[in-house]
Amino acid sequence: MTQTRDLVLMGLFAAVVAGLGLLPKVTLGFGVPITAQTMGVMLAGAILGARRGAGAMAIFLVLVALGLPLLAGGRGGLGVFAGPTGGFAVGFIVGAYLTGLLAERLPLRMVFPRLLIASIVGGIGGVYLLGIPHWALVADTPVSQVLLMALSFVPGDLIKACLAALVAAAIHRGYPVLQRA
């Protein structure tokens, strides 16, 4: 049975992702928005680990689906999942899970590199893993085309992964309570 503490922590990181959605979004060249939210995905995985990180994202998405405007730009409701970016949203779960799994399992002693790799592979790769096929399906575009478009997000994502890994590494040093989970 999930501990009360885990439930509260999952609720907290769902709130962190929601809070990051409130930051103003930067729009790149041809209308590609960069939001800070995927950084929350990486943080959840890197700090809470796979299971609780994915749980946090599931809670976040349930709240979005129930109609709270928590996605970047104040979006929310079921419409999000019908739209072309719905797969990225659901990909938050996969992203946090992968990030957490790698953060827990990668055979690297040094904390920062381990969390950085976890954030890049999990937080970027994991989110795109669902996001890109969903986009391709909704937009009826070949996956390769979507992949090409997605490349324009990657520089921003890398910056976010660095930040997330730095924060998570500092947390693991300064607040070791979490490691006994």
Binding site: A14, I59, V62
Partner: peptide
């Protein structure tokens, strides 16, 4: 699950 949802609304 309902409890965790309430927590999020509380924490934002």
């Amino acid at each position: 699950i309902a409890f965790a949802l309430t927590m999020t609304v509380r924490f934002v």
